[in-house]
Design a protein around this nucleic acid. Structure first.
Lengths: 413, 413
DNA sequence: ACGGTTATCCAAAAAAGTTTCATAATGGGC
DNA sequence: GCCCATTATGAAACTTTTTTGGATAACCGT
């Protein structure tokens, strides 16, 4: 009989106590700033030392000691004095306010798609402060693609006015199945198979690059800042220049034993290719030119746009395909029993047409019918998910080893 | 943007340190005894104080202090001196050995099935030390069923030679969907709907009763002590007097938003009922007497036994049904991409016949074919899973509040 | 300008852990 | 049968961290 989660656990000398308290203070202030909306500095992101002491459950002198140390290291910074709120009494010496310094570094998220590379640079509050897209030719090699990624990252950093040395974490989302060390095992971009994205980009960046499937990154993005915020579980269905699916339970997208959990099954995939042919035939491209296992290369966006304009045939084509797609992924929805199903990809230009078709199909087959909504993140979902993955990496290092910090801290000031 | 898992965290005064160290020592010794196989005392379950200090990472005097306190409270006990191992030098003063006292209490796991109630009593190492089954009539009321459960628990306690006051945790597995507070929301036993198993049994036991779906409990049992030990993910398929399914990822069986994750979808369910009718028609019972949404009441075990004996028709019936069943649950397997698929329920008396049929079906539709194996736990899987749930409850209270212990500690001695 | 109120800072005490050293107990060698 | 090397045990002194309590500083409103 094996028991999981019953390891040796943490233990230690009095210095452990300081580490705990430092981490607790950091968690409090990091959570306070991270919960603010992008671009806007909320009033709740700064704390006085007394408030920190009360919130964390330590005495005031200890809180002060910890705060001073963290300010010294550059993680915390003095914030602007709190504006006088009418209801609050303003007597007594004003307290200095402290906030997590979201500018103490940055993270990078990259989406390596088939036809483009997108790089996002975000501050430590998750606000995107730099973005760059770079087109990639269909037949581009792995070296060319990683070169494009480096170019995009450099451009995004320039727009964000940041130095590469300030990067504290990085992640990349890409098509296909990636192994734990970032090796691309299987991909619809055959040139990428066998290459390690982690190595290709890691050599360029000062931090290791976490690699994830782009559908998983997208559902994570929806959970973090999209249509699935606050949901304990979600299914993501992608219809656009390609199709894909993923799911998320309690904030994580399970990989499965072979990394294929949540993928569209091959059998349904073949049926879907036929349906997709019908869909893209509206573009005027000859159906026979579409290779069998290849669903890219033809742009269905024109169909989605036509459907949105109200053209009957196009609308029917989108509905038909969406229905077929829902049939192929109903097993996923039934298995996960999600709080919400998010429809993303290029199909969102057609508004609710696809989502409505998917909803009505799921209503017929599900014991409990989930909400079906259109993604607010659009095509940048995967890149945003990569940013979230990078932030998670950063948080882990921050909260586990808050005292071991590189040179970049002081430089970031 | 919301960030999960970035709460206030733990912090505190020097006494926190002692709690941490106590918990760490408990974890170490608990894990050591829990990893032993049932009924056998392994050599690895006892530690000397010096070994504890090294393993946990604290100094010897501290380890001694903690151990003494825990022995005082009854969680740890002096173990028999370690036998002289040939390779090990035997010089020096022999150290006393300490072990977690798996007899310091017990846990109860109950399976409330349609036709029986099964109660298991296990010690804190997870060894079953008392078991009792109690038949229940098909139309029995909720009150009658809970009375049967009480009788079974009392009998199992008697056989285990334990007092009800020694029960430290309890859990119940049952058909249907249960809400978080133990209320049965939906069940194929209509008499149970609307009743709270937690309340029905909790009033009888000195601890709150955790309630779970029996399929989820079964897959947890397979993960703990069955065919899925060491697997990061598993799917459980149950074919017997009833059918059901569940899955498990990283040791937890996700509930889904409505508690229906992993259930067989209604559409496939209806097809399955037809297939099931064909299967049970071998028992000679008229097909028309089988109610539509009712798959119990007729015993298919005779078919499984006939198939095992080699009767061609019975074998074909089992294969046909297994194939249909695999088709109905392939979406589950594809979504989870499990390391192993465990086939349980009464069908295991037919040996590998059903598992082989399921395996060949899955091989056709899965991108990565999982292992398909027959459950070694048989019909007691759900009850064993309930024991595991109870142990998890116990572990949580033990490791979070090791010092707050009731009267039962001293009585258990 | 002055009192009230609150933040900040400083010193002493308490809690817990570590190191160091003396003592106890056992098995093997002579 | 006695002695010694070896290991466990236990007690004292020292370190780190936190807390408590009091003294000081800064700001607001009257």
């Amino acid at each position: 009989m094996s028991v999981k989660g019953v390891g040796a656990g943490h233990a230690g000398d009095p210095s452990t106590l300081r580490k705990l308290n430092v981490a607790a203070v950091l968690r409090l202030l990091y959570a306070a700033q991270a919960s603010g909306t992008a671009g806007e500095v909320t009033a709740g992101d700064r704390y006085t030392v007394t408030e920190i002491a009360q919130a964390v459950g330590i005495s005031r002198p200890t809180a002060e000691d910890v705060v001073d140390a963290l300010v010294e290291q550059g993680w915390l910074a003095a914030a602007a004095p709190r504006p006088a709120t009418p209801g609050r009494r303003s007597a007594g010496r004003p307290a200095r306010t402290i906030a997590f310094d979201s500018q103490a570094g940055c993270v990078v998220g990259v989406d390596l798609a088939r036809h483009w590379v997108r790089a996002l640079v975000a501050d430590l509050a998750g606000r995107v402060i730099g973005r760059a897209d770079y087109p990639v030719a269909d037949g581009a090699s792995a070296a060319e693609r990683s070169a494009a990624a480096r170019t995009a990252i450099t451009e995004a950093l320039r727009l964000a006015d940041r130095d590469p040395a300030q990067i504290l974490a990085a992640a990349a989302a890409t098509v296909g199945i990636a192994s734990a060390d970032g090796q691309v095992v299987r991909s619809t971009i055959p040139q990428m198979e066998g290459h390690s994205i982690g190595e290709l980009l890691g050599a360029f960046l000062p931090v290791p690059v976490r690699v994830a499937n782009d559908m998983r990154a997208a559902v994570l993005a929806e959970y973090w800042a999209g249509a699935a915020v606050g949901c304990s579980s979600a299914v993501y269905l992608h219809v656009g220049r390609r199709i894909g699916s993923s799911y998320l339970i309690d904030g994580v997208s399970p990989l499965g034993h072979h990394g294929a959990a949540g993928e569209i099954p091959p059998e349904s995939g073949r049926q879907l290719v036929d349906a997709y042919r019908k869909l893209v035939s509206f573009t005027g491209v000859g159906v026979d030119t579409l290779p069998r296992d290849e669903m890219l290369g033809i742009d269905p966006l024109t169909v989605f746009e036509a459907a949105q304009r109200g053209e009957t045939d196009a609308r029917q084509a989108v509905v038909d395909f969406a229905d077929e797609f829902a049939a192929a992924t109903e097993g996923l929805v039934i298995t996960v029993d999600p709080e919400v199903v998010v429809v993303g990809g290029g199909v969102i230009v057609a508004g609710d047409i696809a989502a409505d078709a998917i909803r009505s199909r799921l209503a017929r087959v599900c014991m409990f019918e989930p909400r079906v909504v259109v993604s607010p993140l659009g095509e940048s979902a995967a890149a945003v998910g990569a940013v979230r993955l990078a932030l998670t990496d950063f948080e882990e290092t921050l909260f586990s080893n808050p005292f071991t910090r590189g040179q970049t801290a002081e430089e970031a000031g």
